[in-house]
Design a protein around this nucleic acid. Structure first.
Length: 493
RNA sequence: GGCAUCGUGGCCGAGUGGCUAGGCACAGCUCUGCAAAAGCUUGUACAGCGGUUCGAAUCCGCUCGAUGCCUCCA
């Protein structure tokens, strides 16, 4: 039987602002769409956090036995840098800057995106569609919206008529805005703006002569508006109504609001059952942002080459750091926080290693099945990874006690504990034991056994000068010796 | 200015009407040749001011502060 049948999951739905019981539209199946990156520059760590949150969610759904279709798009069609007509297309601008084709820009940063996510041990989405690959679908939706009367064409561009839409629908329901308030708060219109209303947004933009990225359409050469691609691709691959739409908090308005409007205008129904929003990663208390330069790149963290952090951090440490905060909370990146997470991460990994070697007895004085359900309860409560991790540390504590002979565990429980730990640590949180590969070499283990043996001989002979020299020099190499009841073990940091 | 979110012990970060979150750091103890590791113990935190309640960090109101969105951004 699939696990999801006896786990009751609740998710925070941005549309209602409440935690709701999660009930997929089709039992056992989940359709999930997440807004991906615009590939005009390298992904920074803030971008990664959002995708990592949904990677964790995807992993948990799969673990529960759902059949998940996870669609995460690549935005490779240029967006205007601002809404005014003279706005520049970000990808085209970058292409001009680097003196290459726009599609070379797209290719370069798509590759970077994939390489980066791979380092963080991401699972691939089921489908990763591109905006430029779905121009026809986007044009079809524009036609539908025009037919329904919720859009107008002017000078080769097509705009969504927000006021008209709002007459019978509710524009702003996701972000808690009222159209009247928005109109009242609008700044002076730019004179050359051809929109009927500042709240209207572009479905199709006419390409000026110098615009490189352009496609033919019934309204002349142009390019699609930013919000349209997600509507086109989510509808195509997940249907007119699907279970989950995710993205960063900063996309809630206007992007997701416009997606709802487009889908409702063209299909006559609300596209998404549960809207999930991941919160921002901040740096120095401010949102990471490409445009302001307040950001740090994954490569800089892994290499340690940056002005913010004192040292390099492994990708799994960064992942662990992020998983220690709830995905809906703002998380601030700092050296102190990473340092603390790194130690915690090693403690968890050491616990896992100790688990392999502990001996079993007839009974356990640690209720593994109850503990296991607590782990599920944490995840079932809107993917509460910080609580889950607290429970994992609880298990580590028991493992260490068993190792010291102060508690016992049965063989059956040990197997269950191992399976559960593996499930949550590796399959669901997506962590990797990054010291393991280094430890796995049999030559290394042989050498270490020899060194440990020599040191213990020196200790037995009370030759502490020699034994301390061995220990200190190993420490300097990043190898820590751990003297326990049943002999000495080591770990590499 | 409008809308939204948030303000938790030295730091990070959960919780959200009564019961120890957790990690890191610090201190004491056990263990150790000394350490480290591990275990145990201690720390009486919830921005401020009012209100509701038998009881609030948790609900309500106000004040102050921070952040996000309102133009592209995960």
């Amino acid at each position: 039987m699939q696990l999801y049948k006896n786990q009751s999951l609740r998710v925070h739905n941005s549309l209602s602002g409440k935690k709701e019981f999660f009930q997929p539209i089709n039992e056992g199946h989940i359709g999930m769409y997440v807004c991906g990156p615009t590939v005009y520059s390298n992904v920074h760590l803030g971008n990664c956090r959002t995708f990592m949150s949904f990677d964790m969610i995807f992993r948990y759904f799969k673990h529960l036995g759902f059949k998940v279709r996870y669609v995460r798009n690549i935005t490779d069609a240029g967006h205007l840098e601002n809404d005014a007509d003279e706005g520049e297309d970000k990808i085209a601008k970058k292409a001009k800057l680097e003196q290459i084709e726009p599609m070379e820009v797209v290719q370069r940063y798509t590759v970077d995106f994939h390489e980066t996510l791979q380092k963080f041990n991401f699972l691939s989405p089921s489908i990763e569609p591109t905006a430029t690959g779905h121009i026809i679908e986007q044009i079809e939706i524009i036609k539908e919206i025009l037919e329904k009367g919720f859009a107008y064409e002017i000078n080769g561009s097509v705009y969504f008529d927000v006021i008209k839409f709002n007459e019978e629908n509710e524009y702003g329901k996701l972000s808690g805005r009222k159209l009247e308030d928005m109109i009242a708060n609008t700044r002076q219109l730019t004179a050359q703006d051809e929109k009927r209303n500042p709240q209207d947004f572009a479905l199709w933009k006419k390409a000026e002569a110098q615009h490189i990225m352009r496609w033919p359409s019934p309204w002349g050469d142009g390019f699609p508006g930013w919000h349209l691609e997600c509507t086109a691709m989510s509808t195509k691959y997940l249907g007119e109504t699907f279970d989950i739409h995710g993205g960063g908090m900063d996309l809630k308005f206007p992007h997701h609001e416009c997606e709802i409007a487009q889908a409702e205008a063209s299909k006559g129904k609300s596209p998404v059952k549960y809207w999930l929003h991941a919160n921002m990663l901040t740096l120095n208390g401010k949102k990471m942002s490409k445009s302001t330069g307040n950001n740090i790149y994954p490569a800089e963290i892994m290499s340690g080459e940056n002005d913010i952090l004192s040292k390099a951090y492994a990708p799994s440490v960064v992942r662990f750091f992020m998983m220690q905060a709830h995905y809906t909370s703002i998380l601030d990146l700092s050296d102190d926080a990473l340092l603390a997470s790194e130690k915690g991460y090693h403690r968890l990994m050491d616990g896992l290693k100790n688990l392999e070697s502990i001996t079993t007895e007839a009974t356990s004085n640690f209720d593994i099945p109850a503990w296991r359900q607590k782990c599920y309860d944490a995840m079932n409560d809107d993917f509460n990874t910080p609580i889950l991790i607290a429970h994992l540390f609880d298990a580590v504590k028991h493992i260490n006690l068993i190792k010291e002979g102060k508690e016992t565990i049965s063989q059956e429980d040990k197997t269950l504990l191992q399976n559960t730990m593996d499930n949550f640590v590796f399959d669901i949180l997506g962590l990797e034991n990054q010291a393991a590969s280094k430890n796995d070499s049999s030559a290394m283990n042989g050498v270490m056994d020899l060194v440990i043996d020599l040191r213990n001989q020196a200790r037995a002979n009370k030759d502490f000068a020699t034994s301390d020299k061995i220990r200190d020099e190993l420490t300097a190499l990043g190898i820590q010796l751990k003297d326990g009841k049943d002999g000495t073990t080591f770990s590499i940091n």
